Simulated assay, not measured.
Amino acid sequence: MHRHFILFKPYGYVSQFVSETKKKKVLGELYDFPEGTMAIGRLDEASEGLLLLTTDGKISEQVRSSSVEKEYYAQVDGLIPEEALRQLREGIEIRTEKELHQTRPCQVRKLEEAPALPERARNIRDARHGPTSWISLTLTEGKFRQVRKMTATVGFPTLRLVRARIGSMTVAGMAAGEVLEVESFALVAPVGDIASGG
């Protein structure tokens, strides 16, 4: 029987179980996962939020497919205007590891207030450094550091990034570092009219 887990990955942890350096915090420090558990996709060390883990390698491809939405909350530097949101919705050119990539149209909206999230282990900064904005981005692709590259390209670098949802699974109500074992992943949520941004 395969086992499946959802994790609210905290800031400062890498999405792996073994690290080449003892300075890196790894997922095995958060929970006693069974042998053969793998993370599906990754969040970089500075990113937080929903990470799915499983002992079933066949599920990984389904989760990473373009039929499953991934929603991120990004706190960006400055007061982001509608024009920048429009550019993000329509798709922009970013540099990936090897080439330029045109992002797909996606859903982007400005959040009127900060989302209810656990405190981050390390503070972002305080109000003396200027205003920030929170936005929601819902993507159906996942290039390396894509959200950070997208917001930087339109002039509003990401200060905090949290993956809030994969399909219909969310981190709502979870504490940073919390792990829940589930019977299966409820992944397939209808992909909306992403080009409209709504």
Rank of each mutant, 00 (worst) to 15 (best):
Y73G: 04
R89M: 09
V63Q: 06
R64V: 08
P115A: 12
K58N: 10
E90H: 08
E90Y: 03
A84P: 00
C106S: 14
P118Q: 12
A116W: 09
Q102T: 12
K58H: 11
G49S: 09
E99C: 08
E90V: 02
L117C: 01
G57E: 14
I59S: 05
T55A: 08
R95P: 00
E113L: 07
L88H: 07
E71A: 08
L100Q: 02
L111C: 06
E90I: 00
Q102C: 11
V108K: 03
E69R: 07
P81M: 10
E71I: 09
G78Y: 10
R89V: 03
T54P: 00
E113W: 00
R89E: 07
L51D: 06
Q87F: 07
D77A: 15
A84H: 01
E93G: 08
E93V: 13
R95Q: 10
R89P: 06
K98C: 08
S60P: 08
P118G: 10
Q62R: 12
D77F: 13
R104F: 15
S65D: 00
L50E: 05
L51R: 05
K70W: 05
V76R: 02
P118V: 15
R95H: 09
L88G: 07
E93A: 11
C106I: 09
G91Q: 07
V68G: 00
G91N: 07
A114W: 00
I94T: 02
E93I: 15
E71M: 05
P115S: 12
P105Y: 11
R120I: 04
T54I: 10
E93N: 11
A114H: 02
P115E: 11
V68D: 00
K110I: 06
E112Q: 13
K70P: 11
S65I: 01
E90M: 12
A121L: 14
E69L: 13
I92Y: 00
A121D: 15
S66G: 04
E97R: 02
D77I: 14
I59A: 10
V63G: 05
S67R: 11
S65H: 01
R109Q: 13
Q75K: 12
C106E: 08
L117M: 03
Q87A: 14
Y72D: 10
I94M: 01
E82G: 06
A84M: 04
Q107L: 15
L53H: 04
Q62Y: 11
V76K: 04
R104M: 15
S67A: 12
S66E: 11
I80S: 01
T96G: 01
L52K: 06
G49Y: 03
Q75H: 04
D56L: 10
D56M: 09
S67Y: 04
S65K: 00
A74G: 03
R86C: 10
